[in-house]
Design a protein around this nucleic acid. Structure first.
Lengths: 320, 320
DNA sequence: AAGCCAATTGCACAAACGTGCAGAACGGAA
DNA sequence: TTCCGTTCTGCACGTTTGTGCAATTGGCTT
């Protein structure tokens, strides 16, 4: 009987994680070597056969989480990270924990909206596989700009999500911002675009980072080729503090009258707030302003962020 | 800042399981020794902070499980165990895996009905903790017999369930069988008994083994002091093949006209079938007859059993 | 303040584990 | 059949992890 690799992995995982046998003992039962068992187990882990999750009982959660939860009304996951780590290391660890936290939330028949950006890119690299049926990954906003069509960058992110969850991927091949609002109106009437918009309207999960205009390190969108001088000054005049999926907002969460949003391809905040699970991933000290605005706008139902940011967020909220 | 042991365990678990750091690295971040981290992690595991579960996608499940599932319409978890192991070792491993499989099914506000017997005793020894709120563990059937009141034996089982899930424990201080049906009727009108019966009626989960009259190794109930000669021959005359919570059934699942059931303290099969999740744990070759009858009666929604029994069950079903 | 018990810590050693590497097994294509 | 490229396996080594033990800490009583 040629027991398949997959079913061996299942047996091994049951014996290892549910019966506490050592790999040695399992190897003997499976008539193979211990190293093979080690490999079977790691394949079981990263094909999603073994699900490890950490559930901190809400009432005993560390105070930091409790304070954010009560201040902003979101489910928080604070990622423990030393303050001394640099941005890149912090991002990596936040991304890994975010990826593993998201995993259990993805179900069959899900429609998963995914934005793009440095944060999402990092998250996408750490996703663990989980087999689902008839799931769809849909891009939230266009990625093209003046220099590139943005296809490869954003589509790599999408593809990784798709293959982790065995989902169909639906790209959104438009620029991040149209030059003319009229062009957007025209395109939004195209059936190819409407198909994507219809999917977005049915999303069950949305995953995004935030852009922030913190003076020290402005995010991707504010620096790299998406907006010109005049547009940036428009944003400043409108008191914009950040964006989610290239849709901008002010510090109080409002976004009415921000003209650039009329040319943006991301979902309106009203539309985004319709989505049941809205997961926001944030890493790095320079995102406080944007994050605070996004929370004020009620864009997220779950927030995953590093410890340092969490602390700044709490003191930020306390003083206001 | 005196970070509590619990919150350290949470941090450590996040770093270890969600960020793939080594214990060494975690120890440095927490400013403690690696061995402490090792201990923090094991405490995180067995206080239920870390939940490990194995989800075999139903469509790729090993054929054995698929066959039982389709033949009997229950959710099956086959425990991989070498056929050469003895009864005690098999029981231990089935019990451990059963305990860890049950864990994730227990929620807050659950009312958990628990039977007693060798199998349940073993399971109760391997439960992993999981904090729930306002859960109740209620005993399914009395445990007294002619020699003992059965209190300690059954109550140990109940107590372990209760402390694993932080649940209130409700014992059922009656004998397994009354000598006279009239006494049962009388007792069933007592308010103290009715309180238990009311809880049983609201159960959301029931957990039980099966008794079997397989000639080689009759179960506890059929051997040890619960029934006298005359009663045993009554059972034989009624073609009884086994019991669940001291309520008997025939091979086809029927139980009408089995007079001993009128004196038994367990829930009637009709009542049991009202419970949403009914988990049956079976270990050992000598339980096939009882198990087959229990399945025919539709008493279980989930079945956890060892591999050898699973195979016998399939061939048993095929020939009939 | 002194004394005691229980809980917690770090050390050191043994056990368990992950992985690069070289050889074996497999699966087409010629 | 032979060849070649790919995948899988076991070995050996270094790393990571569990745990008995003695020392220490911290709380509580006298």
């Amino acid at each position: 009987m040629p027991r398949s690799r997959h079913s061996d992995a299942l047996r091994a995982a049951q014996m290892y994680y549910l019966q506490d046998l050592t790999m040695d003992a399992i190897a003997r039962e499976l008539r193979t070597s211990r190293s093979t068992v080690s490999r079977l187990l790691s394949s079981a882990r990263d094909t999603g056969l073994v699900q490890i999750q950490i559930r901190s009982p809400l009432d005993t959660a560390p105070e930091l989480e409790g304070m954010i939860r009560s201040q902003y009304g979101v489910d928080v996951h604070v990622v423990p990270v030393l303050d001394t780590l640099n941005e890149a290391e912090t991002l990596d660890r936040v991304a890994m924990q975010a990826a593993r936290t998201i995993g259990p939330l993805v179900d069959s028949n899900a429609i998963i909206g995914v934005a793009w950006g440095a944060t999402l890119s990092a998250v996408s690299r750490h996703l663990t596989r989980k087999i689902t049926h008839d799931s769809i990954v849909v891009q939230l906003n266009g990625a093209g700009n003046m220099q590139t069509t943005g296809i490869t960058y954003a589509s790599d992110i999408m593809r990784r999500f798709g293959s982790a969850y065995g989902a169909r991927v639906e790209q959104f091949p438009v620029p991040a911002f149209f030059d003319h609002a009229a062009t957007k109106t025209a395109m939004w009437n195209e059936r190819s675009v409407q198909r994507i918009l219809a999917l977005q309207a049915r999303m069950s999960i949305a995953i995004f980072g935030v852009g922030s205009v913190d003076s020290d390190y402005p995010s991707h969108v504010y620096a790299g080729g998406y907006l010109d001088e005049r547009e940036l000054s428009l944003l400043a005049a409108d008191d914009v503090v950040g964006d989610v999926a290239t849709v901008f907002f002010r510090s109080d969460g409002s976004s009415d009258g921000i003209t650039l949003n009329e040319r943006s391809t991301g979902p309106s905040h009203d539309q985004l707030r319709q989505v049941r699970r809205r997961i926001c991933v944030v890493s790095g000290a320079s995102k406080i302003n944007g994050l605070q605005g996004a929370l004020a706008a009620g864009l997220a139902t779950e927030l995953i962020l590093d410890e340092a940011s969490a602390r700044r967020l709490v003191s930020f909220g306390a003083q206001s």
